[in-house]
Design a protein around this nucleic acid. Structure first.
Lengths: 141, 141
DNA sequence: TTTAATAATCGTTTTTATTCCTATTTAATA
DNA sequence: TATTAAATAGGAATAAAAACGATTATTAAA
């Protein structure tokens, strides 16, 4: 196993997951592509590197990595699940024109409500929709 | 047109939408069922009242009502779009055990980030996942 | 009120994302 | 290295949503 893979091998190992070439490569892909790809994009991009990679492996692996807390699932829009490498908490903005998703910082500790007293909160999600700066200035021109 | 329908007729009319029996009934249903139903639940519940109602009409109508800003779409979880009558902004909590969705109050004006300066924000969404009070206490018992 | 134009509805078909199935391959371990 | 347990590949099955086209209902004008 090459040097650059040690990190991902270790991450998988620490979660008690079996090490496989596919899992390492998919995790590496997500770490290097912070563009919130869908399963379909992961598959088509990775086919260039692993031509025999199958649809079912991509779905199973992404789900397994989410369960292991190594990836996060984004459900911003109807029927398109997107994945991202699990970094620090942040919000997401989706541009309704270009479709790009932008990350933004946010203090998640502010997000609370008395109505949820006694509830166990495992996950907080914030996403906005609108039009991004670039599309707005493109409109004016 | 009966009295109770005047309100929904007016709402549709103000948005420039054509008035139809199905649209009035679907809008009324959402106003009276603040349980965040899926399109499928809307269809099966409404078949009792409108037996000939079709799947395609439900989908088209719900989308049209969302576009007209009379309903809001919730995409909390992968492949299940839910709809709610468009009330004041609030957050959503989904219990991972019982599947119930709870509304909670939140000051949405606090949600901002310098990274979004110059962006046009049309919609803010906040949703949490976890375990609700009832399921937690059921566990202990 | 009748008519013409337009839009909505119904029922079906198609699309598309995801899951399921099973033979084969791979990784962990003794 | 042999064993066994799990992961992968490839394709079939599933299900939600969208697209299609014929029919019907709604609107606005004669």
């Amino acid at each position: 196993m090459e040097k650059t893979h040690e990190k991902y091998t270790k991450m998988l190992d620490e979660k008690g997951m079996k090490i496989s070439h596919q899992r390492i490569k998919i995790l590496e892909y997500l770490a290097n592509n912070l563009c919130h790809p869908t399963a379909d994009k992961v598959l088509s991009d990775m086919k260039k590197v692993l031509p025999t990679l199958s649809k079912s492996t991509v779905y199973k692996t992404l789900n397994a990595l989410v369960d292991a807390n190594l990836l996060k699932e984004l459900t911003i829009e109807d029927n398109e699940i997107r994945y991202e490498y699990n970094l620090v908490d942040h919000g997401h903005f989706k541009c309704e024109k270009c479709g790009n998703i932008y990350d933004f910082d946010l203090d998640f500790s502010m997000l609370q409500s008395d109505k949820l007293n006694g509830f166990k909160i495992n996950e907080k999600n914030v996403f906005f929709k609108g039009v991004c700066k670039d599309c707005l200035s493109a409109d004016k021109a």
